[in-house]
Simulated scan of single mutants.
Amino acid sequence: MPTSADLFKKFTLESVAQIATSKLKDQKEVRSKLADEYPMLADFWEELLPKGEDILIIRCHDQVHCIARQSSKPEVLFFNHHGGFYYPHLRLLHKYPFILKSHQVDIGGCRFVVSGANIMCQGLTSAGGRIQDNMDEDDLVAIYIEGKDHAVAVGKMMMSSDDIREKNKGPCIENVHHMGDGLWINYQLSASHIGGGASAIRPEDAAK
């Protein structure tokens, strides 16, 4: 079974197994879960997922589920793995950078981060790095690079902020989704892909 860091290395549109418009009950559950996990988006849900429009559940290989607003070219907004916490797609994070706390990696670590490597403690504790206080293991985090304006990756804390400073050795953040990976490239589905490239599923099966 792949780890989160392996999910999108080879992700293509062929990785999409099934797409469905969920039942109203299931849509409410998705909206409720997202609202609980991202309370800072309370004033923006009508822009992202209007109540009058359906939500697409995009089921991919390796137990990845993506959420998109139904349209002729739906764009992935959030995704999760094995039904866990929803991560924002990086393109969404660029529009709403306040939804995740962030760490900064020194410029020397840039090529490693955008290649999918996990973030090392030394990349945050060096002169060009920055550590966000009061973060715990398993928290989601945005990864920035020294001198860059936008996040280049989304990850999950493998240890707390205090432990990063204290241990200053080894990997400290799991790199889940980064610029240039398969999900970054294939963030949008076409109408033809929905119609033929993935098999439709019944609404009653969407939440399974």
Rank of each mutant, 00 (worst) to 15 (best):
M1Q: 07
P2A: 06
T3G: 14
S4P: 13
A5K: 15
F8R: 05
T12H: 05
T12F: 00
L13G: 07
S15A: 00
V16F: 00
Q18W: 08
T21F: 07
D26C: 01
E29Y: 01
S32E: 11
K33R: 04
L41D: 08
A42Y: 08
F44E: 15
W45C: 00
W45L: 10
E47V: 11
E47K: 13
G52A: 02
I58S: 04
H61K: 14
H61N: 15
D62H: 12
D62P: 02
V64F: 11
I67C: 03
A68Q: 09
Q70I: 14
K73F: 14
V76Q: 03
L77Y: 07
N80E: 09
N80S: 15
H81V: 12
G83W: 01
G83K: 02
F85H: 07
P88V: 00
H89Y: 07
R91G: 11
L92R: 05
L92T: 01
H94A: 10
K95T: 09
F98P: 05
K101S: 12
K101T: 12
Q104C: 15
Q104P: 09
V105W: 11
I107K: 15
G108C: 13
G109F: 10
C110W: 13
F112L: 14
A117F: 03
N118M: 09
M120C: 09
C121M: 09
Q122E: 11
G123K: 04
G123A: 10
L124A: 10
A127P: 14
G128H: 05
I131N: 14
Q132S: 13
D133P: 13
M135D: 09
M135T: 15
D136K: 12
D136C: 14
E137N: 14
E137D: 12
I143H: 01
Y144M: 08
K148I: 06
D149T: 10
H150C: 09
M159Y: 01
D163E: 15
R165T: 15
K167F: 12
N168R: 12
N168D: 14
P171S: 11
P171W: 06
P171L: 09
E174G: 07
V176P: 07
D181I: 05
D181Y: 02
N186I: 06
Y187P: 06
Q188F: 10
S190G: 13
S190K: 01
S192P: 07
H193E: 11
I194E: 12
S199Y: 10
